[in-house]
């Protein structure tokens, strides 16, 4: 994962993390080397978002700042954007504006 230290766009916060953080917005078509692989991004990824630093299997814990932040819902390939679609809380599910509203049911 040495390559990330040279990246101006991705930051690994803790050595045990399996994600890196976007610190400068990524545009579609940008290249980064992650875990020895040349990744070409196909979509925009904003500041603060997470990208898989290596292959993560379904059910595996995702680590940021050295602490588990939830479990992978599916197999996540290296370089993939990690967010609500492939990561879930181990405590309380996350509400978004698109979630079914409890009162509307």
């Amino acid at each position: 994962m040495e390559a990330q230290q040279n990246s101006k766009k991705l930051l690994q916060i803790h050595k045990n993390d399996n994600v890196v953080i976007v610190v400068t917005s990524i545009r579609a078509g940008d290249h980064e080397v992650i875990d020895g692989r040349d990744i070409t991004f196909t979509q925009e990824i904003g500041i603060g978002h997470k990208v898989a630093a290596r292959q993560i299997k379904a059910g595996e814990k995702v680590y940021k700042c050295g602490v588990p932040i939830g479990s992978a819902k599916e197999d996540i390939p290296v370089g993939a954007h990690i967010h609500l679609h492939n990561l879930k809380s181990d405590y309380i599910s996350t509400y978004t504006r698109d979630s079914d509203h409890a009162f509307a049911k």
Binding site: V22, K50, K64, K88, A102
Partner: peptide, 25 residues
């Protein structure tokens, strides 16, 4: 848990936070 969701607003997710644990850190 009784309230139905955590201290987590939709804007948090738009900003790249996915779970309450992540926001906690």
């Amino acid at each position: 848990k009784v309230m139905g969701h955590a201290s987590f607003a939709p804007g948090n997710a738009e900003g790249g936070l996915t779970t309450i644990e992540e926001k906690s850190i």
